[in-house]
């Protein structure tokens, strides 16, 4: 495996001039690798810079009301981000509520319950779910899931809750088309499950086997091992994994654009169409000019800040298990 041949070695002994040559290359190589690494920082700075540069005119024009206003009127050139921000948060929360228990269940199955021969295929299947492009989830959501969702969930549920005080508002669908905030949240949940599940699986794998075995040794059931050994050991890191999923859910674009309905309307019902920051940018950016372009950039800026904060938190939490 060691590839410095005897001949090369002798040559470097014979000719000191070659040595100085090589030290020149050595320096260039080192600088090139340092430069590439710095490029990572530059790209991040560039993303922040371009968002602020593009979004600033809109933020100056509308001030704080950009965030609190729900008006998005291209004709009158009035823009407010509230609907998109609420849509982004709502879909992400729905995704977490549905996705997190399922992901943790999958991780527990893979690390504790799964027979050895099944482990690899199941792991691969879950990871392949992460490799499927988001646009495919969008098509599946719009053409397969949404019609079924409208028929078997929206229409029956709307009938049941109609007239009820709280549920009659949040789960009532005036036009049961299948698309809407809840549908987007469900598709997002499916998309973040593989990420949370595989990170959680890795975290659970890192817990020393001896802890688990000693718990089983004193007669604990699997549930008790999970509850009293694994969760206290990995708890914080699992929250980190969840945040990682949240970061994905906040910024996911294509799948959401397909199924959320893209309406700028503040609606109390989860069955109604809405929009997220990412879906609005995807929808309008190519036709946008002037202030609308700036407003979209400002939306991007908000999205960036939120996901950045979430991802930083996620990394710090996930990293904790490694340093311990």
């Amino acid at each position: 495996m060691v590839a410095v041949s005897q001949k090369q070695f002798m040559m470097s002994m014979d000719r000191p001039s070659r040595r100085s040559n090589q030290s020149g290359f050595d320096k260039i190589f080192r600088l090139a690798s340092l430069g590439s690494a710095l490029l990572v920082l530059i790209v991040l700075a560039g993303i922040i810079g371009s968002m602020i540069h593009g979004g600033l005119p809109a933020l100056i024009e509308f001030g704080p009301s950009f965030i609190t206003s729900s008006v998005w009127d291209v004709q009158r050139d009035q823009y407010g981000a509230l609907v998109a921000i609420i849509g982004t948060l709502t879909t992400a929360v729905i995704a977490l509520v549905i996705g997190v228990p399922i992901s943790i269940g999958i991780a527990i199955f893979l690390t504790q319950l799964c027979p050895a021969w099944l482990r690899r295929p199941v792991s691969t299947t879950i990871e392949l779910l992460a490799a499927v492009p988001s646009i495919i989830y969008g098509m599946w959501g719009l053409f397969v899931f949404a019609p079924l969702f409208a028929k078997f969930v929206q229409i029956p549920v709307s009938k049941i809750v109609e007239g009820l005080p709280v549920f009659g508002t949040i789960l009532y669908s005036r036009v049961p088309s299948g698309v809407g905030v809840l549908t987007a949240g469900i598709i997002l949940a499916i998309m973040i499950i593989p990420f949370i599940a595989s990170v959680t699986r890795d975290i659970l794998d890192q817990i020393p086997t001896i802890l688990r075995e000693s718990a089983y040794g004193i007669g604990c059931t699997t549930w008790e091992v999970v509850r009293h050994v694994l969760v206290p050991q990995a708890g914080v890191s699992i929250i980190g994994a969840v945040m990682l999923g949240l970061g994905r859910a906040l910024g996911e674009t294509m799948a959401v654009t397909f199924v959320i309905g893209n309406a700028n309307r503040l609606s109390a019902s989860l069955f109604d169409p809405g929009s997220t920051i990412a879906s609005r940018i995807a929808n309008e950016f190519n036709e946008a000019i002037g202030l609308q372009l700036n407003a979209l950039m400002a939306l991007g800026c908000i999205l960036f800040l939120v996901t950045f904060a979430v991802l930083v938190l996620a990394r710090l939490l996930v990293a904790r298990v490694k340093t311990r």
Binding site: V43, G46, I47, S50, M51, G54, L244, G247, R248, L250, G251, E252, T253, A278, I281, A282, F285, M297, G300, L303, F304, T307, F308, L311, A314
Partner: peptide
């Protein structure tokens, strides 16, 4: 894990 749409904007 950064949203890919922001990279498009950049």
């Amino acid at each position: 894990a950064a949203p890919s749409i922001l990279i498009g904007l950049f």
